[in-house]
């Protein structure tokens, strides 16, 4: 660990009895989670389960502020805290589909959240996600980058920010095997620095990077525990599915 990368303290994130309705549909229902500081967590579950919605709510994005229950950081409610202030308190989010920016250079994008920017920081962040600084630092974060490149550059910008709590929505989507290993290294680095990591994923390989797993379906947290046990979801899909409000499960139930 380098001198500048000393542990960054607590960052206790709690989600308390969180419920949210979007477009008339309950998308989060009474979700309660304690994220352990300095641990890596994974949120899994089928499409539409509410994983990204939970991440957006924790980040405080527009359209995700009308909820019941609470989100707390170090015991303090974030209800009235806007996105940028949440970020300054150390929370950040890597989007499932990162934004494109016409004309904004990779270098400036990476340094947007860094406290004191330098070329060295840009280099370091790009190398950590396996991108050649010579080739990428002066390009724009626009449509000429491939999906995977944009994802990796977004992660580089998160690393440069040195956050306390990182939400990563499907960090592996569009990422090749080699780059995925870099991303796993970066997750380990974040943890080593004491950051709390929350991964959203559909992949068992990514789940295995975590220490705790949370299974969502239909807006509900239906199970949590060790990655080995919760990870069985990937073999069995939703285990006996009683959280579908009486409707038939869309997933095949196979007894193991």
């Amino acid at each position: 660990m380098r001198a500048e990368e000393k542990p960054i303290g607590s960052g206790r994130l709690e989600v308390r009895d969180l419920s949210m309705t979007l477009g008339g549909k309950p998308v989060l229902q009474h979700v309660t989670i304690d994220f352990w500081p300095g641990h890596v967590h994974a949120l899994i579950g089928p499409n539409g389960a509410g994983k990204s919605t939970l991440a957006s709510t924790i980040m405080g994005l527009a359209g995700y502020q009308d909820y019941e229950g609470d989100v707390l950081l170090d015991g303090e409610s974030l209800r009235e805290v806007p996105v940028d202030e949440r970020a300054r308190r150390g929370i950040t989010l890597g989007w499932q589909e990162p934004a494109r920016f016409e004309g904004l250079l990779v270098r400036d994008y990476i340094l947007a959240g860094a406290k004191n920017g330098s070329d060295e920081k840009v280099r370091d962040a790009l190398l950590r996600v396996g991108l050649d600084p010579e080739r990428y630092a002066s390009r724009a974060v626009d449509k000429t980058l491939s999906g995977g490149e944009r994802k990796r550059i977004e992660l580089a910008s998160i690393l440069a920010m040195k956050p306390r709590i990182v939400l990563m929505d499907e960090p592996d989507s569009g990422i090749d095997v080699d780059a995925l290993n870099r991303i796993f290294d970066a997750i380990r680095d974040l943890k080593a620095r004491g950051a709390t990591v929350i991964l959203i994923t559909h992949s068992l390989t990514v789940l295995k990077q975590a220490e705790h797993a949370f299974l969502f379906c239909n807006g509900k947290l239906i199970d949590k525990g060790s990655i080995d046990r919760i990870g069985r979801y990937f073999e069995n899909q939703c285990l006996p599915c009683d959280h579908q409000d009486g409707r038939e499960s869309p997933f095949p139930v196979r007894e193991s």
């Binding site: 980040m59 994005l61 527009a62 806007p82 996105v83 940028d84 949440r86 970020a87 300054r88 929370i91 950040t92 989010l93 989007w95 990162p98 934004a99 947007a112 959240g113 977004e154 910008s157 998160i158 920010m161």
Partner: peptide, 9 residues
Amino acid sequence: ETLMARGLT
């Protein structure tokens, strides 16, 4: 929101 999620006002 992406830039604000990195702490920019």
